[in-house]
Design a protein around this nucleic acid. Structure first.
Lengths: 139, 139
DNA sequence: GCCACTTTGCAACCTTGTTGCAATTAACAT
DNA sequence: ATGTTAATTGCAACAAGGTTGCAAAGTGGC
């Protein structure tokens, strides 16, 4: 993705495209699966951790990326391919491989709906399946 | 639950019922919703943190309790009411209230199945719905 | 009672995430 | 352009939660 495209997407989502945010969004929009703050630190070695942390928070607040918990001990993120216009219907499942510790985005696997009790109001869903991925199973 | 019942359940699950484990299992089997290691520390003030941590790990390893991630920053646990004989079908959903920060067990809400891609093997599912609970909504 | 093995308590530590604050940069009116 | 204000960034320090090493205490078999 070009810097220009990044800026446009961010502006449409109400995020001011600062240098760190562009750097962050450009880097993560090229990743196919999930990543942690630590992963991003390694990817962008010369950028400060707390700046990246704040960039991720901003992007997450404006729904350009999603945060999810996979039990690995660190919060994972993935880019929202609907550029901030995600409805609950469009959330995809994630798969955590217990062997290689990678968390996949299952783009084609939409989160199935559950029935909430009376009076409960859902905002988002964290759905992570754990097991062995196809790569590790082959090996 | 009596100490005797706790011991029986643990033994059936292949867990040697030591003092800390009995204390832990008895305490948590009386809780209706989820709890963290920290919650348990507060509940059993005179017991060491790492002993509780190890007891929870042992109980979890033998499926007497389940661990789940709700994005609160600490791992939550809940007792398995099938006493270690939980199949994937029986896993219930959890609900994290963004206001009161409580994580409910939705006992009557079974985790809906998702379709995995070819070659992926599921072992367990972490399904946490986030939103506002009925108590907080009323207020 | 003695020995091997397990469990427990304590302290120390690691990792991840988070904040305070000063320095820098950007936005904008004059 | 310049000054004024607000937002962002980098650094360092910190907090919380989880985890481990190790010695002491407990358990069980003989």
């Amino acid at each position: 993705m070009t810097v220009k495209e990044c800026c446009e997407i961010m502006e449409r989502a109400g995020v001011k495209p600062t240098s760190i945010r562009i750097l962050t969004y450009k880097a993560v929009s090229e990743l196919h699966d999930t990543f942690s703050l630590g992963d991003l630190e390694n990817l962008l070695e010369d950028v400060d951790k707390s700046s990246l942390f704040r960039a991720l928070r901003t992007l997450s607040d404006h729904h350009l990326i999603h945060a999810l918990e996979d039990g690995s001990g660190s919060v994972k993120y993935c880019v929202c391919h609907n550029h901030g216009a995600c409805t609950e219907e469009e959330h995809h499942c994630h798969f955590f491989c217990e062997q290689c510790k990678k968390t996949y985005c299952l783009e084609d696997c939409v989160v199935p709906k559950a029935n909430l009790p009376q009076g409960f109001e859902a905002h988002e869903v964290n759905y992570v399946i754990k097991g062995i991925c196809s790569n590790c199973k082959k090996a």
